[in-house]
Design a protein around this nucleic acid. Structure first.
Length: 197
DNA sequence: AGCACGATTAACT
DNA sequence: GTTAATCGTGCTC
């Protein structure tokens, strides 16, 4: 498969989040190719979105969100977890897609070893689980996900028809005020065979 | 300088 | 259902 053009990511974050369903996340780890199909993603849209890390303006942590689309925004939270996002929209406008769920397709033995003791259904069904399974951390912050030779990149995958896309409010933002807390900005592939929780 | 909390997970009652 | 783990970030004093 081939990587996306940056133009794909320069569109509004809601469109990119929906269209990333079915795409492939690729991680080359010690020369081994790991991959998975994106089956869950959330949109975070600008400084006015009070659930978005850009809600308090430009800071050192969220700086990459203001940069060019198609790059990785990876941050550390809860003292132990890494989360991976894809920067979208025009340069200067802070928006990103949080990757929340994958269906692993290549490198299953390596993924299993990095998710020790867990059933295959639980390998990548959470934002911090998939970064652990794919060995993704802050070193990949700012990585160009459109680089066909990058060790972390996105590749075009199956198109998911509209009737197979589920939309719900975003997860883990219970302290965010309305209307943002309830906006249906979480996108999932129905019948992916992966349990949600 | 201090503090509350976080786009979570796994283990435990 | 509840809670510990564990620390960077942003806000208040």
């Amino acid at each position: 498969m081939s990587v996306f053009s940056p133009v794909f990511f320069e569109r509004p974050v809601l469109l990119v989040a929906r269209d990333l369903l079915g795409a492939q996340l690729i991680r080359i780890q010690n020369g081994v190719r790991l991959s998975g199909t994106i089956i869950e993603a959330e949109a975070y849209d600008g400084e006015q979105d009070l659930a978005c890390h850009a809600r308090s303006g430009h800071t050192p942590r969220n700086e990459v969100m203001y940069g060019p689309a198609g790059h990785a925004y990876i941050y550390f939270t809860y003292g132990m977890h890494w989360m991976m996002n894809v920067v979208t929209g025009e340069t200067g406008y802070p928006a990103a897609v949080l990757l929340r769920g994958l269906l692993p397709t290549e490198g299953l033995d390596i993924i299993a070893s990095q998710r020790k003791g867990q059933s295959d259904k639980l390998w990548c069904n959470g934002p911090a689980k998939l970064t652990r399974a794919f060995s993704i951390d802050g070193l990949f912050n700012r990585a160009d996900l459109c680089d066909p030779f990058g060790d972390l990149r996105l590749e075009i995958g199956a198109k998911i028809p509209e009737d197979n896309v589920e939309k719900t409010p975003r997860i883990g933002i219970q302290n965010t005020p309305e209307p943002w807390r309830s906006l249906p900005w979480r996108f999932l592939v129905k019948q992916s065979g992966i349990q949600r929780k």
